[in-house]
Amino acid sequence: MTAKEIAKLAGLPESEAERSEVREDLEKILRYFSKLEDLDTGDIEPLVQPVYRENALREDEVKDPGFGTKEVLFNAPDAKDDMIRVPRTI
């Protein structure tokens, strides 16, 4: 994975990853992370959430969120016809 590809996936311009001090830092930190390889983790199950709970389920009932078109558009940088406007999508 090249630095340019990473930048693109991360929604950043390629130039962000191309700066030499950035690349050095990134490489250094990745090497730092590689320390974990020393540990034998075998078949242990990954821990995603630190405190166990299961099944947070919600009833299928419409809730009025006190939120709608006005709130969506309030912080929008650009809008038209009650919709957010962006450059042409493919």
């Binding site: 969120p65 939120f67 709608g68 078109t69 709130e71 969506v72 558009l73 016809d81 009650d82 919709m83």
Partner: peptide
Amino acid sequence: APNSHTCP
């Protein structure tokens, strides 16, 4: 209306 069936 557009964006009316929404929430945060």
